[in-house]
């Protein structure tokens, strides 16, 4: 049945000239801030919205692509090599701008929802967003970019979930994006693209702030703003704990 519907849409799309009907996105996020406290084990951001139309829906399959990405940070990718019988870090490449988190969710198979050209033009997929500049350090930049993506995918920081965006009645859509516990703090960007026949016809950007709160925030700030005080505090806790344990055990063994 689905296949039939798809074929029908495909036929309809090719037979009638694609009329330029304005379509827009009205979307929201379940939360605009994610708080990292002591019990933080990751979070889920719900992206939901609707397609806004002034006229009846145009022909051609509708697609939705949602990209949630974390702040960019430089990262060094190192490769080990066997030298003198042992494995040591040999070549290394610095990637100046690599997103610390990158999740792509689509309403169908990626290649069908988005054309190669639009993907490249709008930097949608992970490999379009991570790339290594030509350096003298290596002649295989692509291998280093692939390694960065592979390692972060294994850590749950980069992901591509095809067909995870639910679209109902050709109008409403929603998707859940998982943030793992090892996310970096900062301003996260949620980009939503609406496509017809793989071409982007509308987009919208929303922001989510991911921040430490409470004790976590306090400890982090103290460690960076007053490092000497923080170091002394760490030592004081260690000394007090060592002494208390010793005293407690002495009382325990006397009785």
């Amino acid at each position: 049945m689905r296949v039939l519907a798809f074929l029908f849409l495909l036929l309809a799309g090719t037979s009638t000239a694609t009329a330029q009907v304005e379509e827009g996105i009205v979307a929201g996020l379940s939360q605009n801030r994610v708080s990292i406290d002591a019990r933080f084990v990751g979070s889920e951001i719900l992206v939901f919205g609707a397609v806004k139309r002034d006229a009846p829906a145009p022909e051609g399959p509708l697609g939705v692509v949602i990209v949630v990405q974390g702040p960019n940070e430089p990262v060094i990718v190192r490769r080990k090599e066997r030298r003198f019988g042992i494995f040591v870090n040999a070549e290394n490449v610095t990637v100046q701008e690599a997103p610390t988190f990158y999740a792509v969710a689509t309403s169908g198979p990626f290649d069908e929802v988005l054309t190669v050209e639009d993907n490249a033009a709008r930097l949608v997929s992970i490999d379009e967003s991570v790339w290594v500049m030509d350096t003298d350090a290596t002649d295989n930049e692509q291998a280093f970019a692939d390694a960065l993506i592979r390692i972060r995918e294994n850590d749950g920081l980069y992901s591509r979930q095809e067909s995870s965006v639910r679209v109902s009645q050709n109008t409403l859509f929603d998707a859940a994006i998982q943030l793992p516990a090892n996310v970096t703090e900062g301003l996260y960007q949620a980009r939503i693209f609406l496509t017809r026949e793989g071409r982007i016809i509308a987009d919208q950007v929303s922001y989510v702030s991911v921040q430490k709160v409470g004790l976590e925030r306090w400890i982090y700030n103290l460690a960076h703003d007053l490092p000497l005080v923080y170091g002394l505090l760490s030592l004081a806790i260690a000394i007090a704990a060592g002494w208390i344990a010793s005293a407690a055990f002495r009382m325990f063994s006397r009785t």
């Binding site: 976590e216 460690a223 170091g231 760490s234 030592l235």
Partner: peptide, 22 residues
């Protein structure tokens, strides 16, 4: 060493330290 690390590198984690210490 702890003091040097906290001061220069900001790499002492109090939360981790307290659990290990206990």
């Amino acid at each position: 060493t702890t003091l040097m690390h906290a001061w220069e590198n900001h790499t002492v984690d109090l939360g981790l330290a307290v659990l290990l210490i206990v």
